[in-house]
Simulated scan of single mutants.
Amino acid sequence: MTITLALVFGGFIGVLLGLLGGGGSILAVPALVYAVGLDMEQAIPVSLIVIGLASAVGALPKIRARQVEWRLAGIFAAAGIPATFAGAAIGSHLPQSALLLGFAAMMVIAGIRMLSGSERTGTACKSSEGINWRRCIPRSIPAGFAVGLLTGLFGVGGGFLIIPALVLMLGVTMPIAVGTSLLIIVANSAAGVISHLPGLDINWTVAAAFAVTATTASLVAGHLGTRMNTARLQHWFAYLVFTIAAFVIIDTVFLR
């Protein structure tokens, strides 16, 4: 039964990933905890495996199209990978209820971000000759650290933070921001999995079932998504995120 649930909900998360990009991964941990029956300690690395695989697959066409800023991805990863280990260490000392409530708060922030749909573009990294690294690096390091910390702590890729940081704060164009974000998520997710593995007993059959169906479904949904109104879909998804966040809070505070 557990394998069946992992296949079903892995496919559901994969569809969201394919239609919405990295933002869909924010429901992976709640699905693994409440539907598949894992605890937070097990759900976080499994979620990161799914996010990392899906992001790697999504990054390939962006790399071929040269829609990636490699140096910027390297700066974010260099700041984010140590922060991912720090986040995992912090999370290991927190009770599951605290992690669930923190995750719910992060879901609310992500939902608000999805509804805002800001079209503004920052200028911190822009110059007439390309990227102004003198201004760009000092702003990129704290952003990369924050994303890495959330990755290690909650098992999320952080795309809902990386893309706004690249576009709104640093001034990277949206196509480049998406491709660069995917590379950053792959690096942070790999570090997150490694940081959570010592001493952890994972049901690898469940993890593989969830990851394979999620990745496959994301590829199929990614092709179908080009024909859909993704802006409206993102709004509906934000409301779903709010609903699940409310459920997590009620369950953690009143029912456990």
Rank of each mutant, 00 (worst) to 15 (best):
T215M: 01
I141W: 09
G10C: 04
S127M: 08
R232Y: 12
P138T: 09
L5R: 13
L53W: 04
I194T: 13
A231K: 12
L170C: 03
T226M: 12
S118L: 10
S218Q: 06
G11L: 05
P142K: 06
Y34N: 05
V108K: 04
G14A: 09
R71M: 11
T215L: 00
P45T: 00
I90F: 12
I75Y: 12
G22N: 09
V68D: 02
V172Q: 04
V29A: 11
A214G: 13
S195C: 07
A104S: 11
I194F: 14
A56V: 05
S218N: 08
A211V: 00
E119N: 15
G159E: 01
L161I: 14
I249T: 14
P30D: 10
A35W: 09
M169W: 13
I202E: 02
L20G: 03
A83L: 08
T180P: 06
M106N: 11
A190N: 05
A104P: 04
N188G: 07
G24H: 07
G171M: 01
A207G: 05
V15C: 11
G18M: 02
G117I: 11
T226G: 13
G122I: 01
T180C: 02
R71P: 07
L168Y: 15
L94F: 11
A238I: 07
F154R: 06
F12W: 10
L200E: 08
H196F: 03
G157H: 03
S97A: 15
G102T: 09
S118I: 05
R64V: 11
T216Y: 00
T180W: 04
E119R: 15
G222Q: 03
R71S: 11
S189H: 01
I163Q: 10
A77E: 05
T216C: 12
I202A: 01
K62D: 12
I90M: 09
A146G: 14
G102V: 07
A86K: 03
V212Q: 00
G23R: 03
G222H: 03
F9I: 00
R113F: 10
T180Y: 05
V57Y: 10
R256S: 14
V248N: 05
A59E: 07
Q96E: 15
P198E: 10
G130E: 04
A110W: 01
G24Y: 02
S55D: 06
S195R: 04
T4N: 10
W70V: 14
A89N: 08
G91K: 07
G122A: 04
G222T: 04
V172F: 08
A86I: 13
I63C: 09
L197Y: 10
G171S: 04
E129P: 02
A79D: 05
L168H: 15
P175L: 04
V15T: 12
A165V: 06
A124C: 08
L20F: 12
S97T: 13
I249A: 15
A83T: 03
T213N: 00
L5P: 02
T226A: 14
A105E: 10
G11P: 09
I26P: 03
L149C: 03
T123R: 14
F76L: 11
S92P: 05
G18W: 02
P138N: 09
A187S: 14
G111C: 08
V15I: 15
